[in-house]
């Protein structure tokens, strides 16, 4: 379809599918490009990892303690609708254009959905389940880790999946704004220089990365929450 469309349009800025696909091995074969892409993935992994490690406990605490929720909710309500990329200029001003800034933006992008879903998951935990745990002698901290966390896990992982996709988006956006290295850097430099086959090839690469990461995550998720999935007679095509 793409091939037909581009042939029909005969536009310089719309390379044919074959041209774009041909450019992929060139990019992946190039040492510098590969280092760039790996640097992107590294930032994404660190930003995502730290975000998850902080957001899940925070969300769970908010879900189980009214005081914690009352403290953080207004703050998060302000940050939530702000596009995280819009914060980049300020962060760049403070922290420069390096890894820290970009990782921080990814962190911000991932945190909110993970906090939100952890919060909702923790809130929905059945009181009687916690009471049953308390009767067995679990302390409040043990209940949070050993009852609230697993009970809210399906919801938490839904948030993490959204967070993963957002990590990719904020990764590219941050590299678009602060060009220095990374997959987004290659993409937008190529755009500036009119190398449209590279642009399209990069889009394919980033897209494929996103699909792969999501698929891997989905497999892990499905395995972890097998106990909660409703059983369908029909396989769901999208999962």
């Amino acid at each position: 379809m793409w091939q037909v469309a581009s042939l029909a349009l005969k536009n310089d800025s719309f390379p044919t599918a074959i041209e774009a696909i041909r450019a992929i091995p060139d990019i992946l074969g190039d040492r510098e490009s590969l280092i760039n892409i790996l640097a992107s993935l590294r930032r994404m992994a660190i930003g995502f990892g730290i975000a998850v490690l902080i957001s899940i406990p925070l969300g769970l605490l908010m879900g189980r303690s009214r005081a914690v929720a009352a403290f953080f909710n207004p703050l998060l309500m302000i940050i939530y609708p702000v596009p995280k990329a819009a914060l980049m200029p300020i962060i760049m001003l403070w922290l420069g254009v390096g890894d820290v800034t970009k990782t921080l933006v990814i962190f911000l992008g991932v945190s909110l959905p993970v906090i939100y879903h952890s919060f909702e998951g923790a809130k929905a935990v059945e009181e009687k389940m916690l009471w049953s745990g308390a009767a067995m002698g679990l302390s409040p901290a043990q209940r949070l880790v050993r009852i609230v966390l697993p009970a809210a896990l399906p919801e938490i992982l839904t948030g993490c999946r959204t967070g993963l996709v957002l990590a990719l988006i904020t990764m590219i956006t941050s590299e678009m704004i602060a060009r220095q290295s990374g997959a987004g850097n290659i993409l937008f430099n190529a755009l500036d220089m009119g190398q449209y086959d590279t642009v399209f090839a990069m889009i394919i690469i980033v897209g494929a990365m996103g699909i792969c990461l999501d698929a891997i995550f989905e497999r892990i998720r499905a395995r972890l929450v097998r106990w909660s999935e409703p059983q369908f007679d029909m396989p769901l095509s999208f999962s």
Partner: peptide, 16 residues
């Protein structure tokens, strides 16, 4: 405390 064991109408089992 474990000296008093509840059984609830909602079962409240640990689903995981």
């Amino acid at each position: 405390g474990p000296d008093r064991g509840p059984v609830f109408q909602e079962f409240a089992l640990f689903p995981w």
